[in-house]
């Protein structure tokens, strides 16, 4: 395996995500992911790049057990996703925060209720839910919109809402698919700072992006996929912008 990233917030901690020769095929002869092996340690931050169809989203879907690999093994937080029982998937997902490219927000619920959902599924007491949701919405700058519905928000606000829902549970692993795609440069940096902050608190982070300026600016580990293969794994520079 590759050497441990030097910007891991907790050097020496065990890998939270491990892929061993993982391949994924949706139809015979065509591979969405091909023989990918990698590790992501606690507090480690990795950018995931590649052209559309390179396998970024597939890799993320495998990590949060939305799919099972066709070949190879995936260990996430000590659970073997390749063999996980369907009944054990919810417990795993509660420890993995995901920011989806299409946000996957509930249009009939308010902003506040969308964020609260992630806490409610683990049975967090109502009072705690309210205070944690408010704090989180404040961090992403949406506290003034908490009683609005997602469809009345701008694309950037929806993206921040999706991030708030993913981070409010303080997940051990965060998967963010183009989390800054709809944001202006100032907001992009604010959101990225939130994600970097989560990594500093020990969350292992994958961020899929097409924005090379971000990779350059943050100098984190960079994984590049092409045609389903991991063709480049560049360690981080060990500094923060």
């Amino acid at each position: 395996m590759r050497p441990r990233d030097d910007d891991a917030a907790h050097p020496g901690a065990g890998a939270l995500v491990r892929l061993f020769h993982v391949s994924k095929s949706y139809q015979a002869g065509s591979w969405a992911l091909r023989d990918v092996s990698l590790e992501l340690a606690k507090g480690e931050f990795a950018f995931l790049t590649g052209p559309s169809g390179a396998g970024k989203s597939t890799l993320m879907r495998l990590v949060f057990a939305a799919e099972q690999p066709s070949e190879g093994q995936i260990l996430v937080l000590g659970r073997n996703v390749s063999r996980i029982r369907p009944s054990a998937i919810p417990a795993l997902r509660r420890r993995v925060g995901v920011v989806f490219q299409d946000f996957k927000l509930l249009p009939r619920r308010t902003v506040e209720a969308n964020v609260a959902l992630a806490l409610e599924v683990v049975g967090t007491p109502t009072r705690q839910v309210r205070s944690r949701v408010f704090t989180m919405l404040k961090r992403v700058g949406l506290q003034h919109r908490r009683y609005h519905h997602p469809l009345s928000l701008s694309g950037g606000e929806q993206q921040r809402l999706a991030l708030a829902r993913a981070l409010v549970t303080e997940p051990e692993v965060l998967l963010a698919d183009e989390p800054t795609g709809n944001l202006d440069p100032d907001l992009t940096l604010e959101i990225m700072d939130l994600i970097v902050d989560a990594a500093a608190r020990g969350t292992a982070v994958f961020v899929a992006t097409h924005d090379h300026a971000l990779i350059e600016r943050y100098g984190r580990r960079h994984l590049h996929l092409e045609d389903g293969r991991l063709v480049q794994d560049t360690p981080g520079r060990g500094h923060r912008p």
Binding site: P90, R93, F100
Partner: peptide, 16 residues
């Protein structure tokens, strides 16, 4: 069904 899918993606159990 979208709502159900999202609930499952954020880790809701079948009972929830």
């Amino acid at each position: 069904r979208d709502e159900i899918e999202i609930l499952r993606l954020v880790g809701a159990s079948r009972a929830f």
